[in-house]
Nucleic acid binder design. Structure first.
Lengths: 358, 358
DNA sequence: CACGTCGATGTAATCGATTCCACAAGGAGG
DNA sequence: CCTCCTTGTGGAATCGATTACATCGACGTG
């Protein structure tokens, strides 16, 4: 593969001049410039990003470590992150932690070794020493969706409190009084926060959240199923199951079906994290939607700010309730939207995999 | 960040010795080795992958360019690719082409500039000059799922012919005679192949595939919807719509619902590419399942073989029909699956059909 | 006319590793 | 006791870029 030396030889100039042309440095004669450009063309030369990175100590690359790529929420997040990064001149390397702290560490280490310019993390656990060290060492970092309390790193996330309150009001209005939650791992900030928001919302309606109605899940479908089975085995099973993420909601749906029960007639179901598929499930699932794309973009902007020396900002965006049919009674007409089945272009109900064609 | 020089100084040896220890070269004294290791530990030293790559001309990185991350099929593919690559000591950088040739080129160029060791591609189109050049220049490459005919690159893919035959037989048995297909882009090998397989299967049942029953889609949900609307507007609409990928199937489902029609009572629906959510849609969708995980792993193995100087093999694995309820009549119990859900790997019984490439 | 300035260019150092080569010490063999 | 290996080690070149510094004309000005 042709190197800058070959180009210099072909153009009859020094490598310094070639480099100047390539980085459009002001003081290069028009003549030299055209000769270099011609040589570049002729040889099909492309600068070696590895060498450039070694010299300049920047890779123009961001690392993104997420907890589960197979979760549509994170997939969408990854997509928007890559999009925004590309717009700002950065590439993204994704590391999938699969909710496993050891894998998370593996990826963080790998990305650090590759000298990425900054790291976007949605931590799986309470924070490994490795990650803490990286922060201390000055690696630009931003947390997205989940975060580690007490660490001085900007956080970009959605606040679900209001939406959870709306949900509980909705459920209460439908006459439900025994509400249970499938919680996420206690080690994650979002896991805890969602339970707290739920408990608080219940309290404002004079309802209680007994321990038996808090199931411990791990953000994976299997745990949703397991926990739901536990709920159904209770002497007094809940009337509503609220899953703290979409995968666990699917697991819950399975468990309910396996008992021959029906949603929402026998038991209601709601989820945190809205995903396109929830429109098509049987029945369509009421969920709390995060502004996922916006979160990804904001996270990238914060990280790039930090990298390029501007002060980064934490960002919190509101989540909102999207009512469908899984909690009872047909959905009230959604804002600007036609009735549910034809999932029109409403911001609330999006058709499966809506693409904001760029 | 500490460099190899710092370690050498700390350990009282030369950089050469440090390097030898790190790459466990045989001739290093036990004494030097322990001193170096201690220094590494003390400084928290980590080798700079950028510098190492520049010198050794290998990055231990694979590029994966896929056509659409938001498509669960590709998400799962990406996941299995990363897993297998990690097991073999490689990292993966994913590029999402979003079915856009220009974006595909952007990522290929970017990956090439980063001097990745090899490239895994699921081409969006018939092959840009850039990609052809890369092949000619000797970049190790393997095609996954889709491929470009006439290019000498190993292909790892699923063969759906038998499964499509099974599907048509199934549909025919249910009394359906007017079958339509939403095809993928003609520029993709899979797009064409699936139509051909469908047409052939129909022929063996004495059925015809009129042009009006071939809709041109682009593997995105919106196109599935559009094409389906066209079908429904025909004087004699089809009894079955077969979508060549999962997203278009969802679009079709939308279109059908929007007309107030019911699946499968008014019209049947089937899809190529099975995904976990098809179990939960209303109704569950009959689909042709690819051994996605196995494909990803096989592709990585082929690519790494090529990179490390072993002859790479093309691999073709059989897809299989998964009958659910979207074409009529309750699904016969699926093989080993109980209530189905956990989107587990399903390498049920498929025996890999390998054939080597010439 | 001499000198300072500025634009264009080349030489060489540098980034952090790997690795070829030279060399010293020590042991084996004659 | 002198070669000849073997083993362990360090010096220095190298990978492909960027960039500080030096150089060299040409030009403007006093």
């Amino acid at each position: 593969m042709a190197s800058i030396k070959d180009v210099a030889a072909e153009a009859g100039v020094s490598v310094a001049t070639v480099s100047r042309v390539l980085n459009d440095h002001p003081s290069v004669s028009a003549d030299a410039r055209t000769r270099v450009l011609a040589a570049v063309e002729a040889l099909g030369y492309r600068p070696n990003a590895v060498a450039r990175s070694l010299r300049t100590d920047q890779t123009h690359t961001l690392g993104l470590v997420i907890s589960d790529v197979m979760n549509p929420y994170f997939t969408e997040l990854a997509r928007s992150v890559e999009e925004e990064a590309r717009a700002l001149g950065y590439s993204v390397i994704i590391g999938n932690a699969d909710e496993r702290p050891d894998l998370q560490d593996h990826h963080v280490r790998n990305l650090l070794d590759r000298r990425i310019d900054g790291l976007l993390v949605s931590p799986t656990d309470g924070g490994s020493p490795l990650m803490l060290d990286a922060v201390r060492a000055g690696t630009p970092m931003v947390f997205v969706d989940r975060w580690i309390p007490g660490v001085d790193v900007p956080v970009v996330r959605a606040d679900g409190r209001a939406a959870v309150r709306d949900l509980v009001t909705h459920l209460h209005g439908l006459g439900h009084r025994r509400l249970a939650i499938i919680a996420g791992p206690a080690a994650t900030a979002t896991g805890q926060e969602r339970v707290e928001a739920f408990r608080e919302a219940l309290r404002t309606h004079g309802l209680d959240l007994p321990d038996a109605y808090i199931g411990q899940g791990d953000f994976q479908a299997a745990s949703g199923r397991r926990v739901t089975e536990g709920f159904l085995d209770l002497p007094e099973p809940p009337e509503v199951v609220f899953a703290a993420d979409n995968l666990m909601a699917l697991g819950a749906l399975d468990a309910i079906r396996a008992r021959g029960l029906r949603v929402p007639d026998d038991i209601a179901l709601a989820a945190f994290d809205d995903i396109p598929w929830f429109v098509h499930t049987d029945p369509p699932i009421t969920a709390i939607a995060q502004p996922t794309g916006e979160l990804g973009r904001a996270a990238v902007r914060a990280l790039v700010d930090r990298i390029e020396g501007r002060p980064p900002e934490s960002v919190t965006l509101p989540a909102r309730l999207v009512v469908r049919r899984s909690c009872g009674e047909p959905a009230p007409q959604e804002p600007s939207a036609s009735p549910e089945p034809p999932p029109a272009q409403s911001p609330a109900v999006q058709s499966p995999v809506r693409r904001s064609q760029t």
